[in-house]
């Protein structure tokens, strides 16, 4: 079996790779969002502290 045959999935390639592709995309996006939220949260904590120092 060669690779183009493998990716064709006997005509079901769109459905099979569309499923796995979406799942992978969602996992990547979710991981990126969780990391981004951590960065933002830590930034906010620092800003909050700096604001308190100035008072």
């Amino acid at each position: 079996m060669n690779w183009s045959e493998f990716f064709a999935m006997k005509g079901y390639g769109f459905y099979v790779w569309g499923s796995y592709g979406m799942a992978l995309l969602i996992f990547i996006i979710e991981i990126a969002l969780v990391r981004h939220k951590r960065t933002i949260t830590l930034q906010e904590l620092r800003m909050l502290r700096d604001a308190e120092k100035e008072e």
């Binding site: 079901y12 769109f14 459905y15 099979v16 569309g18 499923s19 979406m22 799942a23 969602i26 979710e30």
Partner: peptide, 20 residues
């Protein structure tokens, strides 16, 4: 959010399986 994303993956992959 993680549960919602798994529910979405379930529906999405189900649609792509249901069509053929």
């Amino acid at each position: 959010p993680t549960g919602a994303l798994f529910a979405f993956i379930s529906l999405w992959t189900g649609a792509l399986w249901g069509k053929p």
